[in-house]
Design a protein around this nucleic acid. Sequence first.
DNA 1: TATGAATGAGTCTTCATTCAT
DNA 2: AATGAATGAAGACTCATTCAT
Lengths: 200, 200, 200, 200
Amino acid sequence: MGTSDIREPIQKRSIEKKEKIIESGFKLICKHGYHNTNTAEIAKAAGVSTGIVYQYFEDKHDIFICGLEKYADNIFYPIPDFSNEKFNKKDFPAIIENLINNYIENHKLSESAHQEIMAMTHSDEKVSYYFFKREMEITEMISNYLSSNGFSKENLIEKVHVMIGIIDNLCHEIVYHKHKEINYTVMKKIVIENILALFK
Amino acid sequence: MGTSDIREPIQKRSIEKKEKIIESGFKLICKHGYHNTNTAEIAKAAGVSTGIVYQYFEDKHDIFICGLEKYADNIFYPIPDFSNEKFNKKDFPAIIENLINNYIENHKLSESAHQEIMAMTHSDEKVSYYFFKREMEITEMISNYLSSNGFSKENLIEKVHVMIGIIDNLCHEIVYHKHKEINYTVMKKIVIENILALFK
Amino acid sequence: MGTSDIREPIQKRSIEKKEKIIESGFKLICKHGYHNTNTAEIAKAAGVSTGIVYQYFEDKHDIFICGLEKYADNIFYPIPDFSNEKFNKKDFPAIIENLINNYIENHKLSESAHQEIMAMTHSDEKVSYYFFKREMEITEMISNYLSSNGFSKENLIEKVHVMIGIIDNLCHEIVYHKHKEINYTVMKKIVIENILALFK
Amino acid sequence: MGTSDIREPIQKRSIEKKEKIIESGFKLICKHGYHNTNTAEIAKAAGVSTGIVYQYFEDKHDIFICGLEKYADNIFYPIPDFSNEKFNKKDFPAIIENLINNYIENHKLSESAHQEIMAMTHSDEKVSYYFFKREMEITEMISNYLSSNGFSKENLIEKVHVMIGIIDNLCHEIVYHKHKEINYTVMKKIVIENILALFK
DNA sequence: TATGAATGAGTCTTCATTCAT
DNA sequence: AATGAATGAAGACTCATTCAT
């Protein structure tokens, strides 16, 4: 009846428990899909009873959203390790390569999370909202970074957005080993060159 | 599983009925998601009884796979309208633009099918297999086309694959209007230039 | 998702099945209380599966309401067996006695239904609405009957309402044998005299 | 069941705490219904932890019964404010009116308690027992009072019982405003006259 | 072939009660 | 004595699949 009796844990033990549920739940959902994961499994994986789950979360969906908020940074678009210092134009290739490697690492960590989230994007407004917001945030962040390093502002947003897409695709290929016909070392090289061309 | 009692319809009426179920089912599943679509809805949309569905299909999953096989060509990677004739290098930009427009049209038609399929890709081996296979087929098809038009075979597969990814991303952006910050006309222009650069 | 997929049975078999669920459900709920009766029990008592219950009814509550609508006439206030003919003033005592006997019969039949319904009256608007409406209907029906037989219209509604209350109490006493200290034959006689005095 | 570990509080603080739980619990249960009130709410309303509840009470049901025992006097049948002095026959109407007003006050205070208790009466033997016992006690008390004031003992119990029922109904009507068609001032007048007639 | 009524296992969620602290 | 986190059994409801007709 009340709007929500969700308890916000204060004690360290409880906080850890809540974190554990988010972690286990999000992991399972990402691995097997939202609908193929039930609350009993989540509770079991987190080492708690089913009941306690509902003291910390509204419902199953809430667990997923919490996981999204918690891990999204690392899943979608890792915040580039931009030092505040200006970079030299000749370092740009290295910076791109670094960015790519970061992405790949993240994709490896997040396993299938990315795809599950993409999946829910079109049937779940909350997921969709979060995903798109995050995508734009990172686009703007990179744009600003490049802009403050002397890159032309003209169509910068669009260029960065294209770049992110390219990198994202590359990562998927590499992490999920989608096609044996593709030589990933070559592909990576091509991607870098392509991005450099993009910013001329 | 095991021996099945699935009837392969011979009569025209029956064939049409089966096709209708595939069409309705696939459409609904793509629109609302696999788990948000139930067999009753599918049957109703197809104008048949729930019972008959199980005479044509193993189970609900089977309907989706059949839809995948039937419509995937148009959803994922439309077969480029390559005439067998050689093309002139100076026509390449136009060909690319054409390819992009084709893609966009297809995405519009298939609405959210693409995302739903991607979603199931990681929890469903059959979907995954079909998707990856198809992706590679089209990559090779385009590669061959370019190769036979004088493009260097060196890393061609990889280049084409990168290109497809870029186009795919562009289409998503345009079709789903994901971000209001992005100017899609500009983005499209950038993508074309970028692809041209890719093949130098 | 749709507003309701409740099926209205057309075939005789199905209609009977729906009736059976209402009957079993209402009986159980009245006997053990709404919260002490679960859907599995209702289904079992009706000789059907739990699933089918939800094809005919919105939810458990709906079953109860249907039972209410179906049986309420007999439970609360049986429609008095008023012939259209005028009655002679000297027959009034007999008519009252008849009314009382009718009530008692009904209470016996409905067992504890009456109390369960009263119980839900204050936490369930639908039940409450139905109950009060019915109560007034019968009050007005009797008022009209008496009025058309020459009884003064002055405060007639109120008098009838008081009368109904008296009869209702008497029935409860008699049917539930609430108190061994009470001589029910005597009580009944007193009630009749009291009602006569009411209408002078 | 069996031996219990229920602690009977001795210290003043504890006694107060137990009283508070009874009060809060009984109030909530009467207001929202037994099944719509959970122990967490009761504990919260009483300003104690959920755990402590089970040191003072067997279970949730026990809280309600304790409330019943504690407050029933005021809910069901308020002890008439009979002075021991004899009353004059001509004061009888005033005494009746006083009794009625007392009842109405009590009903207003107890809100829906009465109905909730009636509700549980038929699915709960303990409640039932207590309720019926109490009802008879008050009947006898009033009977004795009237008897000692010169009223004939013949069928006195039954008459008083009928009277209590009439008053009870009146109170319900007035307190819950059940029907807008009824003029309560008139109804009250009729009831008084009716009761006077009952005792001639 | 076709229907759609029927099944019942499976899922989310609640809550009385217990227990570690 | 007290807390409130934790338990887990129980219940409402859904839906893929089967079956009587």
